[in-house]
Each structure stands twice: as structure tokens, then as C-alpha cells.
């Protein structure tokens, strides 16, 4: 069952619009909702994106061509999005930046992987920040050199 992409406006101010993306970004995704409400600053919330495949990345890169005059901020990027950004260059352009993203951390206590929301500023020298939860220090559960590669992309 296809989880078609839905784009909703969550904040609309004179110089800023924030969009919430829900569902999957694939070859059928279109982004007219964003291009038709262009503002000086655009915030794109990926929190509810369930999948992005390489065809979706291509559509996204094509879409970025149309919003070159705005400042674009990505927030709440899930692991699937980060993995694609790391694989395909062009997702981050000079006018785009990632404000926050999810990273996998392992809790020994619960023997579970927890997706922790990090701010890009928290990553210093490519190292995962120390995260504590319920008196337990969580262990970063990916390869740092690979996972934080996107922060080196400057567009």
C-alpha cells in the first residue's frame, strides 16, 4: 500500500512558511504545495517521512532548483532521510541547512534502539554527543564517520 506524500502548512508568517511532510518521498512525489507558497525562509519538517528512495531524492533535488531564492531549513530529519542525504549529494545546497535530525542510540537497559533528536550544533568534530536517559549513558548505534558525513556537505 503506497504511503503517498502529504504536505501540510504548519506555520505561515509574512516571511516564513513551515511545512510538515508526511508519508514517503518517491518517484510520484510532487512539491507544488511548497513552490506555490514560497517565502524568504522555508522550514521543512521531515518528522513524519516514512521513506525516501533514490527516485525521491532525485525529485527533491529537482525541486530545490525552483527554490534557490529562499533560505531552506530542514528539521527533524529521520534516519532514512539522513542515510539518503549521505549517499546522494545535492540534497544540501548553499541555501539549505539541517537544523535537527534523529540519530540511533542503544540502551543496554531496555535492549532497544532509541532515535534521539539532535541539533546539528551538537556534533563537534564528527563525534556523537553524550546522551543520558534514565541514569544510563546511551551508546551511539551507527558509524559516526558515516552518519555525520552530511554535516560536511556545504552545497
Amino acid at each position: 500500500m503506497s504511503d503517498k506524500l502529504v504536505i501540510n502548512i504548519t506555520k505561515n508568517e509574512s516571511e516564513l512558511t513551515e511545512f510538515l511532510l508526511q508519508g514517503q518521498i518517491d518517484e510520484d512525489s510532487t512539491f507544488e504545495e511548497i513552490t506555490s507558497s514560497l517565502k524568504k525562509k522555508i522550514i521543512i519538517d521531515f518528522n513524519e517521512v516514512t521513506l525516501i528512495n533514490s527516485c525521491g531524492v532525485r525529485e527533491w533535488i529537482n525541486f530545490l532548483e525552483n527554490v534557490k531564492d529562499s533560505t531552506i531549513i530542514y528539521k527533524n530529519c529521520p534516519q532514512v532521510v539522513i542515510e539518503q542525504i549521505n549517499m546522494v549529494h545535492g540534497f544540501i545546497l548553499p541555501n539549505t541547512s539541517i537544523e535537527s535530525f534523529y540519530a540511533p542510540y542503544y540502551s543496554e537497559k531496555s535492549d532497544d534502539v532509541i532515535k534521539v533528536l539532535l541539533l546539528s550544533d551538537q556534533i563537534i568534530d564528527g563525534k556523537a554527543p553524550r546522551i543520558e536517559q534514565d541514569d544510563e549513558e546511551l551508546e551511539f548505534d551507527a558509524i559516526e564517520a558515516q552518519y555525520f558525513q552530511f554535516l560536511k556537505q556545504k552545497g
Binding site: 542515510e83 540511533p104 534502539v113
Partner: peptide, 13 residues
């Protein structure tokens, strides 16, 4: 390699 970990959804741990 790094991509093997992503591909198999298996962390180094």
C-alpha cells in the same frame, strides 16, 4: 564497509 552496515540495517554493535 560503512554501507554494509546501512544496507543490512545492522549497527557495528
Amino acid at each position: 564497509n560503512h554501507m554494509f552496515s546501512t544496507f543490512t540495517k545492522s549497527s557495528p554493535r
